[in-house]
Amino acid sequence: MAGDTLITDELRKTIGVAKQSTTIEMEKGMLRQFVDAIGDPNPLWSDEEHAKKSQYGGITFPPGILAASLMGGSGPWLDIPLQRILDGGSEWEFFEPIRPGDVITVVGTIGDLRERQGSVGKMLFIISDIEWKNQKGEVVATGRATLIRY
């Protein structure tokens, strides 16, 4: 019986296909809360006059904002009979700055599914490929996130 595997044929078919898309407007209030939370008082994030002198010519968001739950599409919508969730790590590659007022579209795609027998029982590793684009269609960043369900 093949019923022992978590990765059913149906689930396997989602690899490279199942997508989740979210669009977020990057507001200054979000930026202020974020840099406050990460302990970063750099005036480049808040002072327009100061930021004009920077290589980007204006206020930008720190790249870590993409990690703050703008991850999108880490696969929790997959129908899996496992309730508990663990973050298995993430990676990002940054290409373009994000500016206040940008509209970022995050698309997460199921990149791979793996399964392992852990000490706490069966574990399913859901690996998502993530892409962030701005309103001009530029790829701002790409990433890969591993979510563990067990």
Partner: peptide, 21 residues
């Protein structure tokens, strides 16, 4: 986010290419 702050305080803004955690 904290690590982003750490590296930016050292190197300045706009230098981070990749991060894995």
């Amino acid at each position: 986010g904290f690590m982003g702050t750490t590296l930016e305080k050292w190197l300045g803004v706009g230098h981070l290419r990749r991060l894995r955690t």
